[in-house]
Design a protein around this nucleic acid. Structure first.
Lengths: 171, 171
DNA sequence: GTCATGTATGTAATATCATAACATGTCAAG
DNA sequence: CTTGACATGTTATGATATTACATACATGAC
């Protein structure tokens, strides 16, 4: 069982998916999709923004803004917080990344482009994060909203609990 | 339409429910229920904790920890952050209050004692907050979790959008 | 081309939110 | 009346996020 060291390295438990898979593939495909989507929408995927997304995809973790900043700065980009926050905000706005509030962190979107209402499953033991599409959750939320006359624009759904590995190990 | 002044006063838009209702009644009933629940569970609802809950209930808003602290300090309690955070953490733990992460704020629970998975509707125009029970959302989330072997313990559901009043005014 | 405009980036300074660590106080069980 | 568990107070610091302003770069009008 991985310790509670927090985010930042897959080894520390910040991995964005529980099952084993090909990270390089995710990164390549993710970037390609981002390029295509940006081209289509007219959004400007500039070097900092592109690199920021790449960092999120490569790390395959939820990363804090300052962790992203550190990596950007090491590559010659600005080293003040707004540099990271602006790039991350752009990515979130474009649906290429998500903000995970419980962790004060950001993760690359696993299903960019598709209209999706992601649910995040966060393991409290190892901090791993998985993103799952959950249309049913969105529908249920909107049904509740209608009851009080509220118009839903975005929803944040974060579930805390135990990932399969930690549930096994802990119990 | 109220301005985006943030939390802290119902006038500023932090009200926890959209519909008009009797605040004094909420406060009284909320405190009574909290007393009863604490007595039943053996939790110690000490003066700071009691007063903290009362502040949340009376303000009828989502309040930041430092806003709560300010009010506590004005009444002779400690005036350092841990005083507020400890009391708030206790209330959240006991299910008497909720943390609203999008606002970095806390609000008294509107349905304490009942097993409930609350959904928060946050108006992006006036910051008002409404808490609604949404069992269907919890069920949908758990269904998605089962698909990947995740064990859900707590869920946070926050919907951003427009409250009835702002939707009317804005459109 | 070059100029005006909007957008993006870089930087400094600061605001806001949250916790660690330790000392002191309170209360009930033994 | 002592001990142990919990609660509170305080200091200090850490982590997260934003404001404000200066500079640079792209794009389209002319």
């Amino acid at each position: 069982m991985a310790g509670p060291e927090g985010r930042g390295t897959p080894a520390a438990g910040g991995a964005v998916a529980f099952a084993a898979h090909d990270h390089a593939h995710c990164t390549g495909e993710g970037m390609a999709r981002a390029e295509a989507l940006s081209a289509a929408s007219g959004a400007r995927l500039t070097p900092v923004r592109r690199r920021t997304l790449e960092i999120l995809l490569q790390s395959h973790c939820a990363l804090g803004a300052y962790e992203v900043l550190e990596r950007l700065a090491a590559e010659g980009f600005g080293n003040q917080p707004p540099v990271a926050y602006r790039a991350l905000d752009f990515l979130v706005e474009q649906g290429l990344a998500h903000r995970i509030r419980r962790l004060n962190a950001f993760a690359a979107c696993m299903h960019p482009g598709e209209a999706h209402s992601p649910v995040f499953f966060i393991c409290r033991a190892c901090n791993a994060v998985a993103e799952a599409p959950a249309e049913a959750v969105r529908r249920a939320t909107e049904a509740a909203a209608r009851g009080i006359g509220f118009t839903v624009e975005r929803t944040t759904v974060e579930a805390l609990g135990l990932c399969p590995a930690c549930a096994e190990a802990g119990a």
